[in-house]
Design a protein around this nucleic acid. Structure first.
Length: 924
RNA sequence: GCGGGUGUGGUGAAAUUGGUAGACACGCCAGACUUAGGAUCUGGUGCCGCAAGGUAUGGGGGUUCGAGUCCCUCCACCCGCACCA
C-alpha cells in the first residue's frame, strides 16, 4: 500500500464536511479555548504560501487543545468590505458584491485544500447585511454614549442630559470643545438644535468637520497613501485639502485605558511599544503668558503653551505658535503684517506631505512679545510651521539650549540663546538633558532639572498661571469614507441634526448601484441615489464606514454567528470570553488592534460583554519572502548567459517565473514558451545547464516569485505542506520560501507511513508490545513535541517527530499499540494521513476525538549519563557515569582517563568541577 | 533622531535554566539497489590540517572552572514612529 496523499486528502475533506467533525457547540461542560486568526480581506489575487503560515500554526494549536480536552473555538471569516472591490467595480463594471463573492469562493477553496479545522458554520462576512446590521447597531450604541472621565467609562447620553440639567457642564469638560462652558439654566434655555450640537461634542461616535484629500480631476476623495507629494498616485493630479462633514470615534477618551490595558495582555514588547508610542502620552504643564507690545504694554491677551519641561522656563528665548493658531491675526503688528501674510500664504500652498518631506526651517516674527512671569523678560513671539496646531495648545515656549529644533530655529533667525545648564551646553548643539543643575534660573537656581520640573509646576499652580497637564499624540481618526463599498450609517439628517434610526430599522442595507461615480460636492456615490437619500423627513447619511468598522468586533460574532436578536448573546460571550490566542501580522498594530480594543471597552462599559480586553495573547507571524530567479540577457541580443559566466558580458537581468526553475536550473524549453519575446532565445550554459541568479525579495506577482499553496498541495499533499511551513523556522520570524527544502518533510511523512504499511507487503503492523526502548523513544518525542507545541515552537516539534520516526524505524518498531498513540500526537500537524491511518487501524470516528497520550515517565528514567569531559572548559571526550556517582568516584574515574592523563602531563589537576547531570570540567 | 528586533555552516535553522555549538532538514560528496530515478537505503559533510591538533556563533573587551546565552562597547541589517514641544 502506497501513501496516496491525493486520494486520502480528498476523502477526508469530504468526510469532515459530511460528519461535521469541526462543528463546535457553545456550552458543553468542557473548558473553552478560543483560537483566532486575523480574518483576511478576500483579494482577487488569492493566497500565496505566505498567507497560511499563521493559519497553520493556529490550526495545529487548536487541534492540540481539542485533543487535550478543551472545547475549542477556531473560526474563520472575511473582512469583505473595502476599497479594492470598489476599484475593481469601477474598472471592470463588476458589482463589488459579485466580485467579493467570487474571491471568497476562491479563498475558501484554497483554504479547504490545506485541511483547516474551521467551523465554517460560524463564518462571518463583514459585507453581509446579517453581519453589518450589528456593526451599525454597535455604532448606534457609541453614538448614544459619552465618556465619563470621572469614572473612566462610557455612559448613556441621556445621563449627560440629566447632569447638564442639574449643573451645566461645570464638572464635565467637553472633549470636543475645551472652551465650552454653560450652566444648568443655560442648558435648559438652549433650543433643540443647540443641545444636539453640544451633545454631539460629547458622543463617542460623533460628527464633525474634517479635512480630506480632495482631487478635483478624479472627482473623488483620496486616502493618505493615495496622495504622493501633493498629487494623486493615479494620474498625478493635484490634491487639495477640503473640509467635509466626517464621522469620528472618540478613541482619545480611551487613551488612558488603552495604555493601562496593555499591562493585562500578552503582546510582544514591540507591539506594546508601537501602541504606546501611537497613543503618545506625555506629562507636562500648560501655562499662560501675558502678551505685550515691544514697549511692554499689555495686549490684554494670554498665550497658552504646553511644555513637558517647565523647569526650563528661564531658558525661554522665544515663543512659537502654529500658523493656524487663532492669535496669529490678533497679535501680528502692522509692521510685520505683510511678512506674516506672505508666510501664511506660503504655508497654505504646501500639502502636509511636502511640509513633512522637506524640513526647511521657516517662520516669521509676529511683532508681539510675551512676558516671562518670573523675571518680566520680553520674549518675541514667532510663527512657524514646525509647531503643529493640533497638538497641545498649538504654541510652545522655545528653549534653544535644551531643544534641538528650537536651537536650529534660533540659529537660523539669529535669536540669542540663554544658557541655563552651564557646561552641559556647548554653544553649538542643544542638550535635552535632565541631569544638569540649573543656572540663570531665578528660584530654580542650583536645582537638578529632573527635580525642578515638579517644583516649577507647583509654582505655576500656586500663582494661578499654569497647571499640570497630560497630553496624547493620538487623534480621533475619521470613521467615514466617501465611498460605496462599506457599511451605510444608520443616521438620517433632519434639519442639520443627526438622528439615529431605531434598531427595528436595521440593517440599513447598502442599495445596489451600477455606476459608482462620486456624488456631488465630494460626497460618496450613495449621494447620487435620488430615491434612497430622502428618508423619513430628512436625508440619509451618504458616507459609509471605514474598513476597521466590521473588524473591530468580529471576534464576538463568531461566538454567536446566527443570532438574529443580538450582536452576540451575553451567555455566549460569557462562555467564550476573551480570545485566548490571536494570530496575525504586525501591520494591524495601531489600526485594527487599537480600534477593536476600544470597541471592546465600550461594549464592556455599556454592559454588553464581561471583559474589556479582546485578545489575551497576540502572536505575530512573520512574513514569508519570495526567492526570485533571474536570467541575464546579453545587452541588445536574444542570448542569455548562465549566472556563473555573466560577468564576462554586459547583461540586463530579467525576473523569470520560479515555476520554470528547478533549484537554480532553468527549464530552457519552458522559458522559450513563456513569452513570445523569448521564443527564439539562445543560451550560453555551464555544463549544459543554464543557472539562474537568485534574490530574496517580497513575494509578489511583479517578481514572478509567487508560490501558490495549491501547487504545493497538489505535488506533495497538504500534510507535507503544513509541516514544511512550520519546519521553515519560528512562526514569528520573517523567512524566505524555498520549495526545494520540502523534500525532507515529504520523506518524513512517507517514512512515517512505512511504519504502518509497505508498498509491496501491505500492513507491517504488529500486535506485539513495543520494546521499552521504543517506548522510550516515543515518550521522549511526545514530551518534546508537547512542550514545543505549547510554546509555539512548531519548527522544533517537527524535528522532534522526524527524530522519533527515524529512531522507531531503526528499532524496526511496528507495534500498533505504540503507533496509534503516535497518530494522535502527530494529527494536529498532519491531520489527513493520521485520520486515514486511524481509520485503517480499525478506529471509528475522528482521531481528533481520541485523547492525547500521557507521557509515562517510567520509560524515561535514566540510570547513567554520557558526560562531556572538558579540560579547561574545552570538551575533550565523553564519559558515561552512573547518575548516583559521588564527586569522589567521579574524580577517580576522571583521573584514569587517558585523555586527562595526557593533558595533565604528570601534574595534579588544580580542580575538578562536576555538575551532576551536566558536565565535568578538569582545570589544569 | 527615537523605539523594537535580528546577526550561528553553502542554505533554512537548533541549543527552553550559563554546561558536548551546528540537533533536524536542504544542498553537496561517496556508495548500495535498480532498465530507469526527481523512488529507497548506507556513510560522510563548520573551517584549516595527512594527522596530532588548531579554530569557530557580526567585531572588540569583561565576568566565570565554563559564554551563542550574562555585562560593556562598536558595527551591519530589518521593522515601526518621526517636527508631538
Amino acid at each position: 500500500m502506497e501513501y496516496g496523499f491525493g486520494a486520502i486528502e480528498k476523502k477526508w475533506h469530504e468526510a469532515w464536511k459530511e460528519k461535521k467533525t469541526y462543528s463546535v457547540g457553545n456550552y458543553p461542560s468542557k473548558p473553552k479555548f478560543y483560537v483566532l486568526d486575523m480574518f483576511p480581506y478576500p483579494s482577487g489575487a488569492g493566497l500565496h504560501v505566505g498567507h497560511p503560515l499563521g493559519y497553520i500554526a493556529s490550526d495545529i494549536f487548536s487541534r492540540y487543545k481539542r485533543l487535550k480536552g478543551f472545547n475549542v473555538l477556531h473560526p474563520m471569516g472575511y473582512d469583505s468590505f473595502g476599497l479594492p472591490a470598489e476599484q475593481y467595480a469601477i474598472e471592470h463594471g463588476i458589482a463589488p458584491a459579485i466580485s467579493t463573492d467570487q474571491n471568497i469562493q476562491n479563498f475558501r477553496n484554497q483554504l479547504n485544500k490545506i485541511g483547516f479545522c474551521y467551523d465554517w458554520e460560524r463564518e462571518v462576512r463583514t459585507s453581509n447585511p446579517d453581519y453589518y446590521k450589528w456593526t451599525q447597531w454597535i455604532f448606534l450604541q457609541l453614538f448614544d454614549s459619552w465618556f465619563d472621565r470621572t469614572t473612566q467609562s462610557a455612559k448613556r447620553i441621556h445621563e449627560l442630559d440629566k447632569i447638564f440639567t442639574s449643573e451645566g457642564n461645570i464638572s464635565r469638560a467637553c472633549p470636543g470643545d475645551k472652551k465650552l462652558s454653560f450652566s444648568s439654566s443655560e442648558w435648559i434655555k438652549f433650543d433643540d438644535s443647540t443641545r444636539a450640537d453640544i451633545l454631539m461634542k460629547y458622543r463617542l461616535a460623533y460628527c464633525g468637520v474634517g479635512e480630506v484629500n480632495w482631487c478635483e480631476a478624479l472627482g473623488t476623495v483620496l486616502a493618505n497613501d493615495e496622495v504622493i507629494n501633493g498629487v494623486s498616485e493615479r494620474g498625478g493630479h493635484p490634491v487639495v485639502k477640503k473640509k467635509l462633514r466626517q464621522w469620528y470615534l472618540r478613541i482619545t477618551e480611551y487613551a488612558e485605558r488603552l495604555i493601562a490595558g496593555l499591562e493585562t495582555v500578552e503582546f510582544s514588547d514591540s507591539m506594546k511599544d508601537m501602541q504606546t508610542n501611537w497613543i503618545g502620552k506625555s506629562y507636562g504643564a500648560e501655562m499662560d503668558f501675558e502678551l505685550v507690545t515691544e514697549n511692554a504694554v499689555s495686549l490684554e491677551k494670554k498665550l497658552k503653551v504646553y511644555t513637558t519641561r517647565p523647569d526650563t522656563i528661564f531658558g525661554v528665548d522665544f515663543m512659537v505658535i502654529a500658523p493656524e493658531h487663532e492669535l496669529v491675526s490678533q497679535i501680528s503688528t502692522a509692521a510685520q503684517l505683510k511678512d506674516v501674510n506672505a508666510y501664511i500664504e506660503f504655508v497654505n500652498s504646501r500639502s502636509e506631505r511636502e511640509r513633512m518631506a522637506e524640513k526647511k526651517i521657516s517662520g516669521v516674527f509676529s511683532g508681539s512679545y510675551c512676558k516671562n512671569p518670573f523675571n518680566d523678560t520680553l520674549i518675541p513671539v514667532w510663527i512657524s510651521e514646525y509647531v503643529l496646531a493640533g497638538y497641545g495648545t498649538g504654541a510652545i515656549m522655545a528653549v534653544p539650549c535644551g531643544d534641538e529644533r528650537d536651537f536650529k530655529f534660533a540659529e537660523h533667525f539669529n535669536i540669542p540663546v540663554t544658557n541655563i545648564i552651564g557646561d552641559y551646553f556647548n554653544g553649538s548643539e542643544a542638550n535635552a538633558t535632565k541631569d544638569a543643575r540649573l543656572e540663570n534660573s531665578g528660584f530654580l537656581n542650583g536645582m537638578l532639572m529632573s527635580d525642578a520640573i515638579s517644583i516649577a509646576i507647583n509654582k505655576l499652580e500656586e500663582l494661578g498661571i499654569g497647571k499640570r497637564q497630560t497630553n496624547y499624540k493620538m487623534r480621533d481618526a475619521a470613521f467615514s469614507r466617501q465611498r460605496y463599498w462599506g457599511e451605510p450609517f444608520p443616521i438620517v439628517w433632519k434639519n442639520e441634526v443627526a438622528t439615529s434610526l431605531p434598531e427595528s430599522m436595521l440593517p440599513v442595507e447598502l442599495p445596489p448601484m451600477s455606476d459608482l461615480k462620486p456624488g456631488p460636492d465630494a460626497q460618496g456615490p450613495l449621494a447620487n441615489l435620488k430615491d434612497w437619500v430622502p428618508f423619513d423627513g430628512g436625508n440619509r447619511e451618504v458616507n459609509t464606514m471605514p474598513g476597521y468598522a466590521g473588524s473591530s468586533w468580529y471576534f464576538l460574532r463568531y461566538m454567536d454567528p446566527k443570532n438574529e436578536n443580538e450582536f452576540c448573546s451575553r451567555t455566549a460571550s460569557d462562555y467564550w470570553g476573551q480570545v485566548d490566542i490571536y494570530i496575525g501580522g504586525t501591520e494591524h498594530a495601531v489600526g485594527h488592534l487599537l480600534y477593536s480594543r476600544m470597541w471592546t471597552k465600550a461594549l464592556y462599559d455599556l454592559g454588553y460583554i464581561g471583559f474589556d480586553e479582546p485578545f489575551k495573547r497576540l502572536v505575530n507571524q512573520g512574513k514569508i519572502g519570495g526567492d526570485s530567479r533571474l536570467v541575464y540577457r546579453i545587452r541588445g541580443t536574444k542570448q542569455f548567459v548562465s549566472a556563473g559566466l555573466k560577468d564576462q558580458y554586459e547583461t540586463d537581468e530579467i525576473h523569470v517565473d520560479v515555476s520554470m526553475v528547478d533549484g537554480l536550473v532553468l527549464n530552457m524549453d519552458e522559458f522559450k514558451k513563456w513569452k513570445p519575446d523569448f521564443a527564439d532565445s539562445t543560451f550560453i550554459t555551464e555544463d549544459g545547464e543554464y543557472k539562474c541568479g537568485s534574490r530574496l525579495e517580497k513575494m509578489s506577482k511583479r517578481y514572478f516569485n509567487v508560490v501558490n499553496p495549491d501547487d504545493i498541495v497538489e505535488k506533495y499533499g497538504a500534510d507535507t505542506f503544513r509541516m514544511y511551513e512550520m519546519f521553515l523556522g519560528p512562526v514569528e520570524q520573517d523567512k524566505p520560501w524555498d520549495t526545494k527544502g520540502i523534500e525532507g518533510v515529504h520523506r518524513f511523512i512517507k517514512k512515517f507511513w512505512r511504519l504502518f504499511f509497505d508498498a509491496e507487503k501491505g500492513s507491517v503492523l504488529s500486535k506485539e508490545h513495543a520494546s521499552d526502548e521504543a517506548w522510550k523513544v516515543f515518550y521522549k518525542m511526545v514530551k518534546k513535541v508537547e512542550e514545543d507545541t505549547a510554546r509555539f515552537s512548531f519548527n522544533t516539534a517537527v524535528s522532534g517527530f522526524m527524530i522519533g520516526v527515524n529512531e522507531l524505524t531503526d528499532l524496526n518498531c511496528h507495534s500498533l499499540e505504540l503507533l496509534e498513540k503516535f497518530l494522535v500526537v502527530l494529527s494536529p500537524y498532519a491531520p489527513h494521513i493520521c485520520e486515514e491511518l486511524w481509520s485503517l487501524t480499525g478506529h471509528e470516528g475522528s482521531v481528533l476525538d481520541a485523547s492525547y497520550p500521557t507521557v509515562e515517565e517510567k520509560y524515561l528514567v535514566e540510570t547513567s549519563k554520557e558526560y562531556p569531559l572538558a579540560i579547561n572548559g574545552k570538551t575533550r571526550t565523553t564519559l558515561t557515569i552512573d547518575l548516583n556517582a559521588t564527586q569522589e568516584e567521579v574524580e577517580k574515574m576522571v583521573l584514569q582517563e587517558p585523555v586527562v592523563i595526557k593533558w595533565l602531563e604528570g601534574n595534579p589537576p588544580k580542580k575538578i568541577i562536576f555538575v551532576k547531570n551536566k558536565m565535568i570540567n578538569v582545570v589544569v
